[in-house]
């Protein structure tokens, strides 16, 4: 049991465990799963608000609590159930990334880029700061992120969510095949 838990969990375990949260949130308090809303709630806490942030952020306290829990869960998962082995991504991805100069595969992300030292480099700045900015800007423009559109929205068979998810992939493919070769 412990051995199973400390290994990476397969998709058919993780996917359903994630999906069941959508009805769970509805049943707990009629809440719709969507994590990027929290970025808006943080903006609503700031003074000098534009109309879009002119609401009581405390209505989103449940969601901010959820995301605080996600942070704690990350700590629990890595401290007590951590996987000691390098991440088992496919050989094809490894060789593609090696061509871009990424050859380290221990840990969850390339630590030479995603670190304070990496942040001082151009590629680190683009991937962390510009990337983060686009995640926030795009999620609110599209009205949701992976959780709100890809999972909640598609689960409710919403056509706008399908269009948003196609957009997510269009952007991801552009970044992967056109931007990353230039940046890295």
């Amino acid at each position: 049991m412990i051995e199973f838990i400390s290994q990476p969990w397969p998709w058919y375990v993780a996917g359903p465990l994630i999906g069941i949260v959508v009805p769970a949130l509805f049943l707990i308090g009629g809440k719709q799963f969507g994590l990027s809303e929290n970025l808006r709630h943080v903006c609503a806490m700031l003074p000098g608000k534009t109309e879009f942030f002119n609401y009581d952020w405390k209505n989103g306290a449940w969601n901010l609590t959820l995301i605080l829990g996600i942070m704690i869960g990350g700590l629990v998962g890595s401290t007590f159930l951590g996987n000691p082995d390098p991440i088992a991504i496919s050989d094809a991805t490894k060789s593609d990334l090696a061509l871009l100069g990424i050859t380290q595969f221990d840990g969850l992300l390339p630590s030479d880029i995603f670190s304070l030292e990496g942040l001082a480099s151009t590629r680190g700045l683009i991937m962390i700061v510009l990337g983060g900015f686009l995640v926030g800007f795009g999620a609110r423009y599209a009205g949701g992120c992976t959780s709100g559109h890809a999972i909640s929205g598609l689960a409710d068979l919403q056509l706008p969510s399908l269009i948003a998810v196609i957009g997510f992939f269009a952007g991801g493919l552009i970044a992967t095949f056109f931007l990353l070769p230039i940046i890295l």
């Binding site: 686009l134 948003a164 957009g167």
Partner: peptide
């Protein structure tokens, strides 16, 4: 949806994380 989604996708691939995973 398509334009906002595309911006989001660019950021998702650059950071390798969407909002929930960023916190995790």
């Amino acid at each position: 949806y398509w334009l906002g989604g595309t911006f989001f996708g660019l950021g998702w691939a650059l950071t390798g994380a969407c909002p929930g995973p960023m916190f995790a």
